[in-house]
Simulated scan of single mutants.
Amino acid sequence: MTHSAPDLLRTTTAALAPDPEANPLVPRIAAGTASRTTLAALALEQTWVIPADRGAFEYLAVRSAAADPEAAAFFTTLAQGEALAGERLVAFARACGAQETSYEPLPGCQAYPAYVAWLALNAAPADAVLALTANFSAWGGYCATIATALREHYGFTDEACAFFDFFAEPSSDLDRLATAAVEAAVDAGRLDEKRAHTYGRMLQAYEAMFWSALSKTP
């Protein structure tokens, strides 16, 4: 049975939703008990993640432009979003007192962008669209929680919270582009649901690894 694109996106996102216990850090930030040192580490890890993901999405856009223009549009929009997020990250890092020159990134945090880069090189574009869209749902929820906590418990300004606000805000345009990309792949018979699910499962595991590694910072 062939599923529609909206059904595939919905069911894949639901199937890959992380265990509430899989993230040891966001609940601490939500409660205001995470240290500012840990927040600074979060900011500094993201200074590595954001440009890496942007480059991967740009590569996927180029790779898929000729044969899969719907996926290319999705990845182009993702890359543009990473550029905007990178601009907003500066204020958060400044508010945390993050010192980039003396920081060594954590392997557990950088496994996620490394896998996104692997997908950029190896995954069929539409399969990557489905996997990434499922993962973004969890990430957006985390960002919404963090944005609220930074204001309530840490006294951060709207400017300092803008990075998380950006990812927490639902994007109807991105949803539309994801649906179009998956629909085109389904219609052409080139979507591998099982493989896309595997990619999504791996992304969620690396996402959990990111937060687990950060939770061990002082």
Rank of each mutant, 00 (worst) to 15 (best):
P51Q: 01
L42N: 06
A98N: 09
L130D: 10
T11Q: 12
F75P: 01
N23F: 06
A43Y: 00
E100C: 03
A30C: 14
G108M: 13
S137W: 09
L106Y: 05
R195M: 13
P113W: 05
V116A: 03
L130F: 08
Y103P: 00
A126K: 08
T76S: 14
A196Q: 13
A131V: 13
P18G: 15
A72T: 02
A160Q: 01
S4N: 09
L214F: 06
C109H: 04
A147M: 03
G97A: 08
P170Q: 07
E58Q: 09
A65D: 08
F57L: 10
I146S: 10
S171T: 02
F136C: 12
R201Q: 15
R94I: 02
A73F: 01
L89A: 07
S212P: 06
D192M: 05
R54M: 11
A95N: 04
A117T: 11
T145L: 14
D173G: 09
F136S: 10
T148R: 07
L121K: 12
V49N: 13
S4F: 03
P218S: 02
V116I: 14
A149W: 01
P170F: 08
A34P: 03
S102Q: 14
F57R: 06
W139T: 10
G140S: 14
G81F: 01
A98W: 00
A123T: 14
P18V: 15
L119E: 01
A61W: 00
R63E: 13
T101I: 09
F167S: 00
E152S: 10
F164K: 02
G55P: 00
A34T: 06
